[in-house]
């Protein structure tokens, strides 16, 4: 009998495969043109910049902070920081990866800020976000309503969320970037400002910790 490695492609993988198949030159041209206009302080380009990346940045920050108000505020800080630093950006990575790097730093600063004040944070999925009437449940349920998502039971989702929240922050950052945001190991290394070996180690240990916590829960 010949053993073959089974392989399944879910929607996310198809999406990533499609993105990977997109001609690199086309994406590079789009980003290069946008970058040029951003450096020229073009107001419309900044609108496009926000349209293109604010959803990804918010999603990342929400997963890192588990607090929608913090994520909203840090999203703004991330873009303002990017605005201030865009002149120094030389395109060493994609714009999104660069923004993620800024966002990760913003979230680390916020984490230290809270730690310094020893604040306890309670999170309710029914809590309103800012002045809006939306709740965290609305926000999370809004995306990715593919049939596969519906298969993921409420209990499993809650257990995963809770286990993620419990992970040491360095593991959580790596797992969120790779498994939820879909970055490659190389992009994750750039976003976290660490080597590829460190990313591999954090992913392995992070997932192992998640499985352990899920088994114990």
């Amino acid at each position: 009998m010949v053993f073959t490695r089974s392989m399944t492609l879910d929607d996310e993988e198809f999406r990533n495969a499609a993105l990977a198949a997109e001609p690199l030159s086309a994406r590079t041209t789009y980003e290069s043109e946008l970058l040029e206009k951003l450096k020229a302080n073009d107001a419309d380009a900044f609108d496009r910049f926000v349209d293109s990346y604010s959803g990804d940045v918010f999603s990342l920050l929400y997963r890192l902070t588990e607090n929608a108000d913090d994520a909203a505020e840090l999203t703004q800080e991330t873009f303002l920081n990017a605005f201030r630093s865009i002149g120094r950006f030389r395109g060493e990575s994609g714009l999104k990866t660069w923004l993620f790097r800024i966002a990760v730093n913003e979230s680390r600063n916020r984490f230290r800020w809270w730690k310094r004040r020893k604040r306890e944070r309670t999170i309710s999925l029914d809590a309103a976000i800012g002045d809006s009437e939306m709740t965290l449940s609305d926000v999370i349920a809004d995306r990715g309503s593919s049939p596969e998502d519906e298969v993921l039971s409420r209990e499993r989702r809650a257990a995963l969320n809770s286990a993620l929240l419990d992970l040491p922050i360095s593991f959580r950052e790596a797992v969120v970037l790779v498994d939820i945001e879909g970055l490659s190991y190389e992009e994750t290394a750039l976003a976290l400002d660490v080597g590829i070996g460190t990313v591999k180690s954090r992913i392995s240990r992070g997932r192992e910790e998640l499985r352990r916590r899920l088994r114990d829960s």
Partner: peptide, 17 residues
């Protein structure tokens, strides 16, 4: 890994963007 990918990515509230 598959479940993590299905966990869902929160949308940014339009007012925030």
């Amino acid at each position: 890994r598959s479940d993590l990918r299905r966990l869902g990515r929160p949308s940014i509230p339009p007012a925030v963007a």
